[in-house]
Amino acid sequence: MKKSSASDGSDLLFNQSLEKGLAVLRAFNAQRPTMTLQEVAASTQMSKSSAQRMVHTLEQLGYVRKHPQTRRYQLTPRVMQIGFNYLAANALIDMATPFLSELALRTGETCNLTEPDGTDMTYVARFVSAKFVPIHMPIGSRIPMYCTASGRAFLSALPDNDARQLLLQSQRIAHTEHTKTDLEEIMGLVHVARRQGYAINREEIYLGDMNVAAAVIGAQGIPMGAVHVVAPTSRWSMAEAELRLAPAALECARAISNSVRTLG
């Protein structure tokens, strides 16, 4: 388990046991839905005895269970309570919901609200179209800022130095043949998004997937997240998306921003 500056012993208030327990929970994912104790230890870079203590504690608390036949560990639905509490207490989601619903009706496409977390954007609200959407992105899904419309829209609302620092921290890998990974090229697209008020992304993370996004701006001009509309390439050209979807996404983001700022 990689040590952060907070866990290297310099912060006397930092609880390393809690850090290890959370690392175990995060180790389970779509690629590793179940794990043996040895696999938990390997994925979290813990000793087997340390991993055993963490898993046993989480099992007693009801966050992890062992399959009676396979003897492999997996998460339980109780883990969702933590994420649900965040969503339920999030005022931005409450304020954005009616505007996102209207945007989905207006465009006929799936519309989302994402919030920043490190160098990623996390889905926190989603209105799904009845039309086919090639990529399933449930609440809690994460996408990198550097190669997505919502990420670049968010970056465009930051000062250049802050946006550049986030890009430098990103693992800018090529997900598809269309992915932009060059720092200066991405910064150029961030500048374009800043001038236009919206960002558009075509097949840089998933083939067949295109998105149009605009930043949600809070008090003191600080970006809080981004609204984006899914525009599958099977239904939309980039020109059509910019002509019809971009103004709608921008209007929605501005309406949410105005509502947020009324709270002070």
Rank of each mutant, 00 (worst) to 15 (best):
N15Q: 02
P247V: 10
G188K: 12
M238S: 10
L250T: 15
L61Q: 14
L61E: 15
S50Y: 03
A226K: 02
V133M: 01
S50D: 00
A30I: 06
A219Y: 10
G108E: 04
L18Q: 09
I143P: 02
L18P: 00
S150N: 13
A51R: 04
V190T: 02
A149V: 07
Q165F: 09
D182Q: 15
V190F: 07
Y63D: 07
L245E: 04
L103R: 04
I139Y: 04
A214Y: 09
A153R: 05
V133R: 00
R142E: 07
S156W: 02
D209C: 08
E240V: 05
E102C: 02
E184A: 14
V216G: 08
T122S: 07
K66M: 15
K48C: 06
I93D: 00
W236P: 02
A30P: 03
L58S: 01
I143Q: 12
V212Q: 02
V229C: 07
L245D: 11
G108Y: 01
A231Q: 08
H191R: 13
W236E: 03
I256W: 03
D120G: 00
S10D: 09
Q52H: 06
S43Q: 08
P77H: 01
A23R: 13
S17I: 11
F99L: 11
V55S: 05
R126Q: 09
A88N: 15
R53E: 01
L166Q: 10
L18G: 06
Y206C: 03
L167H: 10
L92E: 14
D182C: 10
K131F: 00
D162F: 02
N90M: 12
L250D: 09
G208K: 06
M187I: 09
